[in-house]
Design a protein around this nucleic acid. Structure first.
Lengths: 233, 233
DNA sequence: TCAAAAGTGTTCCAATTACACCCATGC
DNA sequence: GCATGGGTGTAATTGGAACACTTTTGA
């Protein structure tokens, strides 16, 4: 890039806030985690940031998000949705970058596949260090959207595997909303909204009554995104 | 622009879906209208499209939206919010354009100031012709967002002037939602959610009991956009 | 038999809805 | 008066929250 001479071009990037459910740092109850990547060039060299990159000429915005997730963290999300376009002129020192940010949910088994290292690491979503650019604010907004959306849609399923117990599903809600939920009422709500399919299997081995395994009806969309449709990702 | 040789650059545009409330075409009850501009160059030359234009180097996304509204239709919206970023590679024949779309609400007096002509015209929001690009789909999504948001926020005020009667506010809701609302319950709901301030004035001249005029408490945000805040526009 | 979580039943409370009714004005 | 919309009152319905209770397993 030419130094001094202002090129006045606007760069277009696609980044993604990835959520996964993992045990708390002390080994306790499930908690929201986010994988971040270390910046290897200026600005903000060495600081942690959202995974992202330039949009290529012939890929859609969602394709760019998926490609980048695969490249940087090897993750393939079960749910992906556009979050917001951030374009403040001052958000990247020295140049002008408009970032179209997506947010994604991956389930725990996927999350464990991420090779942590010097440049990729998981962080507890509510205890982040100072990140590059405006990424702390972006994650705050993604968390807000997630916490809103989990109350009126079925996205929580995307953080679990193929089958799950109602306890597990409830603990997903509890981890996201950071409050305990009455098991009885939770069960009825889930059964009422539909999309839950009881399987024949139960989980044995616990020292209590074996819970039934459920799966998610794939014919029902996880979230109603209106005219954008389920492929709005 | 160089013909034939693919430059592979991605253009970044900002467009806006503008809503205003005006009498129905037959002179009847208030209806949602949208101003569109005629395209004066290829592609889609001669067809109607959303007002918009290139993002400039030193303006924010919302500033670009406001500037363009002012330039093309002379409107200054009371409410402005980002809708979505549309970036399908096929959405603009011949080149690659990512459009960051905003949606806006203007009140009726403002709307009447728009100079309609060969290249600017109002259309009933639910009866649009075939528009340029993917703009029909974009407006469908904006309508969906508007209809959702009017039920859990106070944005309806932005379609009215400084003061208004509860009847007028109710007819805004009815126009957006396309169903009739019980006046008694509507009144209580509005009073309960707060933000409404009764003035001393009433409207005389009707052949019935004069309704009280209300105004909107400016200290209360029209919509809760979370960490993005009220200046998320 | 006991502990623990699964799962069911019931009560209470708040919000929404439907609709009856009174009020104030112009004609 | 009486028609018209403004404005108030109230009962019925709904959905959620709280919590008691029964069931089924492992130890």
């Amino acid at each position: 890039m030419v130094q001094g001479a202002q090129r006045e071009t606007i760069d277009l990037a696609v980044s993604t806030v990835i959520f996964a459910l993992r045990p708390a740092p002390d080994g306790g109850s499930p908690t929201l985690w986010i994988p971040l990547v270390r910046r290897i060039r200026q600005p903000y060299e060495g600081q942690w940031a959202l995974p992202g990159g330039r949009l290529r000429y012939s890929e859609s915005l969602a394709e760019a998000a998926r490609r980048n997730l695969k490249e940087t963290t090897d993750l393939e999300p079960k749910y992906l949705e556009q979050l917001y376009a951030f374009g403040d002129p001052e958000r990247s020192p020295g140049d002008r970058v408009v970032s179209i940010v997506y947010w994604a949910l991956v389930h725990a088994e996927q999350a464990d596949r991420v090779a942590e290292g010097e440049n990729v690491r998981w962080f507890v979503a509510d205890e982040l260090p100072d990140l590059a650019f405006d990424h702390n604010g972006i994650i705050d907004y993604a968390l807000w959207r997630l916490r809103n959306k989990v109350e009126y849609s079925r996205i929580a399923h995307a953080l679990l595997g193929e089958t799950f117990t109602l306890s597990q599903l409830r603990s997903v809600h509890e981890a996201i909303l950071r409050r305990s939920i009455d098991p009885a009422n939770f069960r009825r709500q889930m059964e009422a909204t539909g999309g839950l399919v009881a399987t024949e299997a139960v989980v044995t081995g616990g020292r209590h009554r074996p819970p039934r395994l459920y799966r998610y009806d794939e014919d029902v969309d996880m979230a109603d995104n209106g005219p954008l449709g389920p492929r709005a990702s």
